[in-house]
Simulated assay, not measured.
Amino acid sequence: MAENNEFDVADLRREYTRGGLRRKDLTAEPMALFEHWLRQACEAKLPDPTAMCVATVDENGQPFQRIVLLKHYDEHGMVFFTNLGSRKAQQLALNPRISLLFPWHMLDRQVIVLGQAERLPTLEVMKYFTSRPKDSQIGAWVSQQSTRISARGVLESKFLELKQKFSNGEVPLPSFWGGFRVKFDSMEFWQGGEHRLHDRFIYQRETASEGNAPGTGWKIDRLAP
């Protein structure tokens, strides 16, 4: 029982009954299954289906997490954009190992990606930056992400100042704004199941020691829930 009027979360539970994941449902490589699940998340009209939790660690091994939007994916990796002075970008500069989590709760699904982040070339960053709405471009100039500010008014005043400055022209790409591509080594798919008998499958990139050239295939295992 909760004491001192605390909200007791211990008894909050439900059954996961939205379906299963069997080996016959799996694709030969993980990106095909990821794309199938992402399309279903979009078709189900989930809020922010491309939202992912990005986890990094600092120089002391302290983990940090935040929600970021996936902006591109293909066989080469998953892409997101950020201020290069942000906490996550600084941490990735020291340790490029990264974890992504897609939490599709309404479908009783989640996908976990492990890999390494690398900076995107300027041309690729510019291509995406110019595709953004102009107010979002200006917003990138306004915020020195993760720095301390005295009040929200500081941001609003700077936004209005820059909006006036760029009112009759294009917004240039800030030198401190860029992106990362996550080249993944493993991808885990979780589908909730009844009685907590969830289905979990992990794809791990095969190595030369397993009889293949590095990166040419995937080893698939079922994990206990």
Rank of each mutant, 00 (worst) to 15 (best):
A2L: 04
N5H: 07
F7R: 03
D8G: 05
V9F: 08
A10D: 06
D11L: 12
D11Q: 11
L12K: 07
R14A: 12
T17G: 03
R18C: 03
L21Q: 07
D25R: 05
D25Y: 05
L26M: 07
L33C: 05
E35L: 09
H36S: 13
H36C: 10
Q40D: 12
Q40L: 11
C42F: 14
C42V: 14
D48E: 13
D48A: 11
T50C: 10
V54P: 04
T56E: 04
D58K: 10
D58Y: 12
D58H: 08
G61W: 09
G61V: 08
Q62H: 13
P63L: 11
P63K: 05
P63T: 12
F64M: 02
Q65G: 15
L69T: 04
Y73R: 11
D74H: 14
H76L: 08
H76F: 09
V79R: 01
V79D: 06
F80T: 05
R87A: 09
A89H: 10
L92T: 05
N95R: 14
N95Q: 14
P96W: 02
P96A: 10
R97K: 14
I98D: 02
S99C: 15
L101K: 02
L101C: 14
L101W: 00
W104I: 03
H105C: 02
H105D: 02
L107H: 02
D108Y: 01
R109Q: 01
L114I: 00
G115A: 08
A117P: 07
E118I: 07
R119C: 09
T122V: 14
L123S: 14
E124I: 14
V125W: 00
T130V: 14
S131P: 10
R132G: 03
R132E: 02
K134T: 01
I138C: 05
A140F: 11
W141F: 12
V142S: 00
S146D: 12
R148L: 15
I149N: 01
V154E: 15
E156T: 13
L162S: 11
S167E: 14
N168C: 05
E170H: 10
S175G: 08
F180L: 07
F180W: 15
F180H: 10
D185G: 07
D185L: 10
D185P: 04
E188R: 04
Q191D: 04
G193M: 06
G193K: 13
R196K: 12
L197D: 01
R200T: 08
R200A: 08
F201Q: 01
F201S: 02
I202S: 04
E206Y: 00
E206H: 09
T207Q: 15
T207N: 09
T207G: 13
E210H: 00
G211I: 05
G211W: 08
N212D: 03
N212F: 12
G215E: 11
T216N: 05
W218Q: 03
W218M: 06
R222G: 03
R222W: 09
L223R: 11
P225R: 00
P225L: 00
